[in-house]
Design a protein around this nucleic acid. Structure first.
Lengths: 225, 225
DNA sequence: CTCGAAATCAAACGACCGTTTGAATCCTAT
DNA sequence: ATAGGATTCAAACGGTCGTTTGATTTCGAG
């Protein structure tokens, strides 16, 4: 067992990942060069290729570092919710809260760089093609399946097609809320943000999403499905 | 008056814009080189700089070409709605429909490249810093203000702060729905998409968003506001 | 103390970037 | 028919990109 594990376990790796999170968020993947990145991280230019192999591999490592714990937290929240219910079926709003809380918690972690990541994540949803997109989908697959089942139990009368779309809308609301920074200011005029109040944002999101998911299914849609 | 106006009015310009829409959507702004772009458009490498001045100016022209008519349509829909109401106040769901219909119409225009643009637009919402972001905000400002007033009239009891956030959520749902392609498939398993049915998607979106906007305002949020 | 793997470093690689140039070509108004 | 502006073209500009190399330094295990 090496002492390295206590002193600088992967110091260089971590510094690179932190700098990458910030710069990728600000300028995108292609807009951030290895030279800017390594310079900001205070490491040698070759360090990224030495520790990660390539820029693309760095991106993958960056997503895994945050997404794995966040998705584990989502599963854990749902586990706890269903355990507490003792046979009763958790309602849609509780399930929604279990889903959004881990990302809000990450967003509130400004110091730790979580906020940078969560915005970067929101951006990446809409980046097409790229293996990045595929990786995220793969990392999310299990979580999505679990929550889909939970919501089906909470809304037993809703056609599956409709539920799938409403989950899609929910992901959209969440990722956009986390990623887009200034739209609220655009709408509000120049109001100061209260986005930083995690608890308040959770209330707003939960109310909006729960109402949306619970909305009555129109007859025209029912017929088409 | 030149005959050019009937034959190839701005043929090169149009070909460039069309190719740019497709390639920017697939690979992003920085991921698309002038060489790939001009090659796809079938024009000379120097054509972009000759007709638009620079790559950035091309991006701006690209947004203006689609956004100006779409936002005009949004204003027109709202005008018509309020005229038809004859003094009565249009309800939230009607206002929502007036807002989303122009973008759905654009999305359905797959042949004309509207779908490419609408996805690109969804991407650009979350691109930070860049003048692009600023330009979009500027092009949207008037529309946002009009719809904010209309929704305030439709929901007179809602605190402004809450309404602003719910509009933010609405923009998120819409832009994500338009931009993200494969999330529905991820949720559904491997279901074939019915996204192409514009009318059906409008129904789903309107139901979800109307319920979300009309959701009761929780007491905790009221106090904080 | 010493050896060898792990890590860091400066330097260079070829490829591609957005833009500019100046000549060649097209096309319309005279 | 022709002058002259608008457009297209091949070629080149300086710079930056991600990655690789081979020497050098660091540092814990024997």
């Amino acid at each position: 067992m090496s002492l390295r594990a206590v002193k600088p376990p992967h110091e260089t790796r971590t510094r690179i990942l932190d700098a990458a999170e910030e710069l990728f968020m600000q300028h995108g993947f292609e807009g951030t060069s290895m030279r800017t990145l390594t310079s900001r991280a205070g490491v040698n230019l070759a360090a990224v290729n030495y520790h990660f192999g390539s820029k693309d591999a760095l991106i993958e490592a960056l997503f895994r570092r945050r997404l794995d714990p966040m998705n584990a937290a989502r599963i854990a929240e749902l586990d706890r919710l269903e355990a507490d219910a003792r046979g009763r079926v958790p309602d849609a709003e509780s399930v929604i809260r279990a889903f959004i809380v881990p990302s809000l918690r990450l967003m509130d972690d400004a110091k730790g760089g979580g906020r940078n990541f969560i915005r970067l994540l929101g951006r990446s949803y809409t980046e097409p093609n790229k293996p990045t997109r595929q990786l995220i989908g793969q990392l999310y697959a299990k979580v999505v399946e679990r929550y889909k089942r939970a919501l089906q139990r909470a809304l037993p009368d809703m056609p599956v097609e409709e539920l799938v779309w409403r989950m899609h809308f929910m992901f959209g609301t969440l990722s956009y809320t986390l990623a887009a920074t200034d739209t609220v200011q655009l709408i509000a005029g120049a109001k100061p943000e209260d986005r930083h109040d995690e608890r308040l944002l959770e209330e707003r999101l939960a109310a909006f999403l729960a109402a949306g998911l619970n909305a009555p299914v129109k007859q025209t849609v029912k017929k088409a499905a």
